[in-house]
């Protein structure tokens, strides 16, 4: 057993190849001690290919190894992927945000992972490469295999980057979270939304809610409801109702009752969507 710090992608892939599946990729490692027993570890947090935020053919390319702190502080993400900046800003505590990466947040596959909720709303695609060197792309929501279980195979695959369409003219996103404490707290419900407006009509929309299923969940009916609509006061009540009606949630002793969570799903979905619309309208005016 060993702990290896990979300095390059090539080196990391080589280790994965040699270990033939008996190894675990880690980045920030903040959840390492919650999972036992520990296998051999490859620390990829210094691999240049998973770091940094840049533009790539009109898309925002965000490294999977970008920490929550970096994402929250990034001027580009703040202005062109607001939901993600907002989500990253609220995770755990400063210490956890300094270590924990966006990629880790996704691969760890916790059902209420804030960054992942925002990424799904932003329509993010993940870019992965496996030990044999072949790469693939997948939508973030398609990478969830179950509760706390990811299709990203940490023993043979490395999550490299996320590709997100930047919010331009008429577009807006927002993230909302309802937690019992202002820090060091998991959310009872979190929600993120993205909209694209054309002449005040919602032309494209994604509303995401968690924790509902293993993966952040698109509110398909709610999206249908508002698509093609001109958002006004009359619609928000319906959004709230539809959002709460189209999901199945569970209550838990530690968080809240099932009933209350249904209620929060509605409220948070409405608030996230409304905020995203406001931002889109602002961008339209500019």
């Amino acid at each position: 057993m060993s702990y290896m710090v990979a300095a390059s992608l090539e080196q990391a892939l080589k280790i994965l190849h040699e270990k033939g599946g008996n190894v675990q990729v880690i980045a920030g490692g903040t959840d390492l001690y919650l999972k036992k027993p520990l296998p051999d570890l490859v620390d990829v947090s210094s691999v240049p290919e998973i770091l940094g935020i840049c533009r790539d053919e009109g898309m925002l390319s965000i490294g999977a190894g970008v920490t929550h702190t970096e994402a929250a502080a990034s001027a580009v993400i703040q202005s062109e992927a607001e939901a993600l900046a907002e989500a990253c800003r609220r995770v755990g505590s400063p210490q956890v945000r300094n270590m924990g990466t966006i990629g880790g947040n996704l691969v760890n596959a916790a059902p209420a992972a804030d960054a992942a909720v925002a990424l799904v709303a932003l329509g993010a695609k993940a870019l992965l490469v496996n030990h044999a060197g072949s790469s693939r792309e997948a939508f973030v929501e398609d990478l969830y295999a179950g509760y706390n279980c990811s299709y990203v195979d940490g023993s043979s695959e490395i999550l490299l980057r996320f590709l997100v369409e930047p919010c331009g003219q008429g577009m807006g996103s927002a993230f909302m979270r309802f937690a019992p404490r202002e820090a060091l707290s998991l959310p009872l419900v979190n929600s993120a939304a993205f909209v694209r407006l054309r002449e005040n009509i919602i032309e494209e929309v994604r509303v995401v809610i968690a924790p509902v299923k293993p993966a952040p969940t698109r509110l398909v009916e709610t999206e249908k409801l508002v698509l093609g609509c001109k958002p006004g006061e009359d619609i928000w009540r319906k959004v709230e109702y539809t959002a709460a009606s189209e999901v199945e949630v569970r209550g838990s002793l530690l968080r809240c009752s099932e009933e209350y969570r249904y209620h929060l799903v509605g409220v948070l979905a409405r608030r996230a969507l409304k905020k995203a619309v406001e931002r889109a309208l602002n961008r339209q005016r500019r």
Binding site: Y3, V5, L32, Y33, L41, S45, Q95, N98, M99
Partner: peptide
């Protein structure tokens, strides 16, 4: 809490190998 390359981190969550 300690600083790792200038950033506050929970040292209980940092594997020792990471400080290399």
């Amino acid at each position: 809490t300690v600083l790792l390359d200038g950033q506050a981190v929970n040292s209980c969550l940092v594997p020792a190998g990471k400080v290399e």
